[in-house]
Nucleic acid binder design. Sequence first.
DNA 1: GTCTATAACATGATAGAC
DNA 2: GTCTATCATGTTATAGAC
Lengths: 230, 230
Amino acid sequence: MRPVTDKPTTRRRRKDGEATRKKIYDTALRLIRADGFDKATMRRIAKEAGVSLGAAYHYFASKQAIVFAYYEEHQGALEQAMAKADEPSDGLGRLGLLFHTKVTLLKHDRVLLRGIARGIADPEDPTSAFSSETAPLRERAFAQLSHAVRDEPLPKEAVPLVVRALWTFQMATLLYLANDESEDMQRTHGLIDGSLAALFPLLAFATTPMFAPVLAQVNKVLTDAKLIEG
Amino acid sequence: MRPVTDKPTTRRRRKDGEATRKKIYDTALRLIRADGFDKATMRRIAKEAGVSLGAAYHYFASKQAIVFAYYEEHQGALEQAMAKADEPSDGLGRLGLLFHTKVTLLKHDRVLLRGIARGIADPEDPTSAFSSETAPLRERAFAQLSHAVRDEPLPKEAVPLVVRALWTFQMATLLYLANDESEDMQRTHGLIDGSLAALFPLLAFATTPMFAPVLAQVNKVLTDAKLIEG
DNA sequence: GTCTATAACATGATAGAC
DNA sequence: GTCTATCATGTTATAGAC
């Protein structure tokens, strides 16, 4: 059995550890933002954080893990921002707010998106957008999107499909953002507004009887492909 | 002026060089296929090809350049295969043949797709799917897709949009293929068939007057986003 | 000019002592 | 938890061979 005296010690250690971790994390973000993902080497990060290289690797399994931690933090910040904001009454407004807020939070960190983009499509990379390790983060994104369209007059069978489509659009938007060199990311914001304005009204068709067979067919395809749950 | 005697020498040298290049290339593909992208190190590739590390880098600027060369070769093979095949008379059949042929050519090389996936979304990577270096390859893919839908009753304004959408679908299919663990890539083939069967008929709407404003709107969005040319 | 080889470098990651 | 030492590998520099 563990002696009670260990507890306070462990707590203090934990606290020190957390502080060290944060120092490494903050330094890493600062250097990556300033010099880019490649030029911000683990050695420089460790040195400027005042710790050894080994210590940096004690807290972060890899350099990618740092930017992944950043993306987790971003997801939390996005959820907070959405909770605080006045919620538009319609789904179009809610989705627009969600996407624009996300881009606004990320727009000064396109250099970090570069780090995330590495291995985003690599099946063997744990930080891939499709890995089991990133599943919790995906679920949180799904939840936000579900929430945004909760009052739309959609047939129940269409909801998983619509949510998956919105998630895919969101991923594509991040990809576009990472490549967007326009002033203040105007093109990305314009793409969001334009896409939503053009495509959202089409959701109304999902309820028409004419569309039912198409909906059933698309559902079957995506279920077979394991892109939505059967 | 260059003495004529140089010419044969240069030619022979070139020829030797090509043979060496091919040996390195073939060895690299063999090792990557056998052991994966990471375990096939440049040193092992050079050693098994019977050349020095420096020689390998003389012919390929980077390890990624090798898999990029592979993808260029694949594009050529795909074009040849399509030229030989009996061409279906309808656009749906042509697109299906194109996509299925592509997947069939690549299905045993998913491990190479992994190498390609690295940096596919990285704006600073020359082998990114959006870089100017890969523009010629993109244009060849566009040309194939344009060719496949050349007889569809599409309004002229819809063509660039449809081609861009098909290219995006093709990229998404490769991403899906890279992550597909099903037997003989059945899920990828199913996704292609199902998506085309469900979505292709919707193209008919593009010609209806009702759809004209939506088409104009989508065209404006994509033009502003520089995703199609104005 | 074209090709090849060896040596060296920089960096991500790991091992093991304390 | 922290450090130093070490490794493995992508990449580059450079000298020399043809």
